[in-house]
């Protein structure tokens, strides 16, 4: 009986601590986890999020800053999804960092993720003192979204702009083929 409850406690702890196995945010400590309509999204402040920008493994990370209310962001989102599908087997990890306001996560972000059937990893970033961290993402970022970082352990590129699929693939290829 006792071992059962310990086991239960243990698995309970695991499911709380893990976001999703294999995702970039899996080993990080979110400030909050939203869980509704069967969609789980981890929310971070900048300090707990920052390691995602500096992973030192063999993967290529494509990190897109967006929000459901941002028209140009929503427009280019399918291209990031396409990249995620097409390059998954080449160790490319697409991470969509939502800047939606906290009160909109359950009312807008999660329904959006569900409706669009997004498959890339989704992370929520909530840290209102943006002046303290925007330059830590990239010194050239004005703070406008959409914005994208593509990096691996050798190269890092930052873009404050929108992409077509072809443009995004071209930028990715400059890092893949290096």
């Amino acid at each position: 009986m006792r071992s059962w409850s310990i086991l239960l406690l243990f698995t309970g702890f695991l499911s709380f601590a893990q976001i999703n196995k294999g995702e970039a945010g899996a080993d990080l400590k979110p400030t909050r986890i939203y869980n509704s309509e069967g969609v789980k999204i981890a929310s971070f402040d900048f300090n707990s999020f920052e390691p995602i920008l500096h992973k030192n493994d063999d993967a290529i990370y494509v990190i897109n800053f967006w929000a459901t209310w941002c028209l140009p962001c929503v427009k280019e989102l399918p291209y990031f999804e396409q990249i995620n599908k097409k390059y998954k087997n080449q160790n490319v990890k697409v991470i969509l960092v939502s800047m939606d306001m906290p009160k909109k996560v359950e009312s807008a972000l999660i329904p959006f993720v569900k409706k669009k059937k997004l498959e890339s990893e989704i992370i929520h970033l909530d840290d209102p003192d943006a002046n303290a961290w925007i330059e830590k993402v990239d010194k050239n970022w004005s703070g406008a979204i959409p914005a994208t970082i593509i990096y691996n352990n050798k190269t890092r590129k930052f873009y404050e702009r929108s992409f077509t699929f072809e443009e995004l693939e071209k930028e990715l290829s400059t890092i893949i083929n290096k």
């Binding site: 943006a130 002046n131 979204i145």
Partner: peptide, 10 residues
């Protein structure tokens, strides 16, 4: 000078 997140100008 400071920076903030905002909506890109359309």
């Amino acid at each position: 000078t400071t920076k903030a997140i905002g909506c890109s100008i359309k």
